[in-house]
């Protein structure tokens, strides 16, 4: 499955990082603690979070996640958007809350 498939099926909005829309998705990781993501997320996962600051993209890039989804329609900071574009890692947005979105992504990846 690719990031574009997830966008379509979960009705996500692309905020930035369109260059990475063909990234392959291998799983998901839900956390708002950056050290938790640093320590435990894997390459190719989609990271679901409510954090909106630019350090999110620094972590996303270091871990080589497939994409980041910001929940609850929260707005990403300008610096987060520009870093997403620089890194080519898609920054996506959902109006859903973390629980619902994680559940839907899980179902999509484990039909």
């Amino acid at each position: 499955m690719k990031v574009t498939d997830i966008i379509e099926k979960l009705n996500l909005k692309v905020i930035a990082g369109a260059e990475g829309l063909q990234n392959k998705v291998t799983g998901g990781y839900t956390s708002d603690l950056l050290s938790d993501v640093m320590g435990n997320a894997d390459e190719g996962q989609v990271w679901i979070t409510l954090q909106t600051h630019r350090n999110v993209m620094a972590v996303a890039s270091l871990k080589e996640v497939a994409a980041v989804i910001i929940v609850k329609g929260l707005e990403a900071e300008e610096s987060t958007i520009s870093q997403s574009n620089n890194e080519g890692i898609p920054l996506l947005s959902s109006d859903l809350e973390t629980f619902e979105l994680s559940g839907q992504l899980y179902q999509l990846l484990h039909p």
Binding site: L33, L34, S35, D36, T49, H53, N55, V56
Partner: peptide, 16 residues
């Protein structure tokens, strides 16, 4: 609030 300071930094360093 930024999602740092969860007390995982040094343990992550040791593990890695």
């Amino acid at each position: 609030e930024m999602g740092f300071g969860a007390g995982m930094g040094l343990p992550n360093m040791k593990r890695n």
